[in-house]
């Protein structure tokens, strides 16, 4: 008896569907994407590569560039860490407790997302400036915020906060009450329950929030340049350096720095996707 094997279907680009419109919608979407996003990004890549590896390296590792990248990275790291600490507290408070004004607080967490960066920039620089409502008292105890490195961090904390809160919040909301009850029946006190049962469950969301806040902060421009003193080699962020190079008509240098930042963005995007894939594998779906 010769075994009959079922006919293998030929490979198709798209699974056949009764719903019309695939060609036109995909076509329009891909064309738009290519024209608006891919070609311009390709232009950046081509220009950078046209410099040749040696020149590219020289521009990318120029002392001022490296300092600017350090400033951007360092401030973003600190800001993202602060956001993790306070963001988790805010998310916890919003999900677990009820108090007057909770809904208002919940809504306002999204403010940095809706407020233009320039508006945030001038507001923060005035508020934390030498005569500002917060800047003045802080100045009296010796803490300079505006026109000091701390100012950059404050601005980056501002724009990164919603990323942590909004990533952790849904996970907290979905945590079953029974987990904590189970830990309690097994004898764990509140602190043990939180550290051994809850935080590990929140870890992927916290990591993702951190990565998102960090990635956003590294590229931030508008809210930082007003509050920073923007002194080269000291408090100059990488995006500002790009703008300065462009104003100097030094496109190669701008392209090199921009390429470095683009690569970093992609790496961050990749890391975030990996975190989420790992979490999905480990915990089912989180």
């Amino acid at each position: 008896m010769v075994p009959i094997s079922p006919a293998r279907p030929a490979w198709r680009f798209v699974k056949p569907s009764v719903i019309p419109g695939f060609g036109i919608t995909l076509g329009l979407a891909v064309t738009y994407l290519t024209l608006i996003v891919l070609i311009p990004l390709a232009a950046l890549a081509i220009r950078s590569m046209a410099l040749g590896p040696a020149e590219f390296w020289r521009l990318a590792t120029d002392a001022r560039t490296v300092d600017a990248l350090w400033t951007s990275f360092g401030s973003s790291l600190i800001a993202a860490l602060v956001n993790v600490v306070f963001g988790v507290i805010v998310a916890w408070v919003l999900v677990r407790y009820s108090f007057r004004g909770r809904r208002l607080l919940d809504a306002i967490v999204d403010l940095p997302f809706a407020l233009p960066t320039a508006v945030a920039g001038i507001a923060l620089s005035t508020l934390y400036g030498p005569k500002g409502w917060l800047g003045e008292p802080l100045g009296l105890i010796g803490i300079k915020v505006a026109y000091a490195p701390a100012g950059i961090v404050v601005a980056l904390i501002f724009i990164g906060l919603p990323f942590v809160v909004r990533t952790v919040q849904p996970v907290l909301e979905e945590l079953e009450q029974e987990l904590e009850e189970a830990a309690a029946t097994l004898g764990a006190n509140r602190l043990q329950t939180i550290t051994r049962v809850l935080l590990p469950r929140l870890a992927p969301a916290i990591l993702t929030g951190f990565a998102l806040a960090f990635a956003r902060a590294v590229g931030e421009y508008g809210s930082v340049i007003f509050i920073a003193s923007n002194i080269p080699y000291k408090s100059e962020i990488a995006p500002l350096l790009i703008v300065i190079r462009l104003q100097e008509f030094n496109e190669p240098a701008a392209a090199a720095i921009g390429m470095v930042m683009l690569v970093i963005s992609f790496v961050m995007l990749l890391i975030i996707n990996l975190i989420q894939a790992w979490a999905r594998k480990r915990y089912g779906d989180v």
């Binding site: 987990l179 189970a182 029946t185 097994l186 043990q192 469950r201 870890a203 915990y283």
Partner: peptide, 26 residues
């Protein structure tokens, strides 16, 4: 008291052994 929940409430981030050992570890 030993309580067994309807939906088990096992700790997803721990292995079976770690789950069972939890009450003794805390």
């Amino acid at each position: 008291v030993g309580f067994v929940f309807q939906a088990y409430a096992l700790f997803r981030n721990m292995t079976v052994l770690e789950n069972v050992s939890f009450g003794l570890k805390v």
